[in-house]
Simulated assay, not measured.
Amino acid sequence: MGLMTPIEALDASGSFDAYTAKPAGTPKAAIIVIQEIFGVNPGIRKKVDDWAAKGYLALAPDMFWRFKPGYDVDPDVPADMQDAFVAMQQFDIGKGIEDVEATIRAARKLMGGGKVGVVGFCLGGRVAFLTATRTDVDASVGYYGGGIDTMLGESHAIAKPLMLHFAEDDHFITAEKRAAIHAALDGNKHATIHEYAGVDHGFATTSGKRRDDAAAELADGRTEAFFAEALA
């Protein structure tokens, strides 16, 4: 069971909460979990708890705190899904990356130094990609990050390990968009891209209608091995 850690925004505009779970012993490293458009909901909190159980300090910052603090909705409820799409329009991704940077600094302070990784889902996948290009994070993982294809001009700045997971049947991230991402990143020794056949966007959610157990377990296993190496 986690607790809320207050983190000061870098622009001094206030503070936001990060759901935080600590391991039983000394953390191996820290992992920041970046939410989907549905907030720091039970699925995201479970991912935080699971990373702590694996020996990491884990945090999930409230990325919507500037306009919908404490946002928490269920993607399997149609009205919640529609509300989340509306909420997403208010999100300033530049400020979001600043908030991740603040969380990286907070994590290092909580550990007394050490490495930090970021893993994000959906909107968080895009944030994870930009975290790799704009911050000194030690490793980043993005699951089905929408909009990455529009931000490839920043890919030259990737200098630390990055892993991206995509669904081959993703109705948001088309084959054409994934091809553009491959074209920009396949030559970068720091970047690894995996695609999963027969699944759609959201396949690695912890539960619910979107989850595909086989693809989620494969992707999550790759992510765990990736962080074990990159954050050692």
Rank of each mutant, 00 (worst) to 15 (best):
V127S: 05
R134M: 12
V141C: 08
C122N: 08
G145F: 03
Y143T: 00
L130M: 11
R126S: 02
V119Y: 07
V137C: 14
G120F: 00
M111A: 09
E154C: 10
T131F: 04
R108F: 11
G112Q: 08
G147K: 05
Y143M: 00
D149K: 11
D136H: 07
G114A: 10
A107W: 06
G112H: 08
V141Y: 05
F121T: 04
G146D: 15
G120H: 03
Y144M: 04
T131N: 07
D138E: 10
T131H: 04
A128G: 06
V141I: 15
K109L: 15
T131K: 06
G125R: 02
G146M: 15
D149P: 04
G114M: 07
M111C: 07
E154W: 07
G142V: 09
G120V: 00
Y144A: 02
T131R: 03
G124L: 02
V119H: 07
T135D: 09
G114D: 13
L152H: 06
D138C: 10
L110F: 07
G120Y: 01
R134A: 09
V118H: 03
A128C: 06
Y143Q: 01
V119F: 06
G114I: 02
T150Q: 13
A132H: 15
R126K: 04
T135L: 11
G117M: 10
G147I: 01
E154D: 15
A107C: 12
M151C: 10
G125C: 05
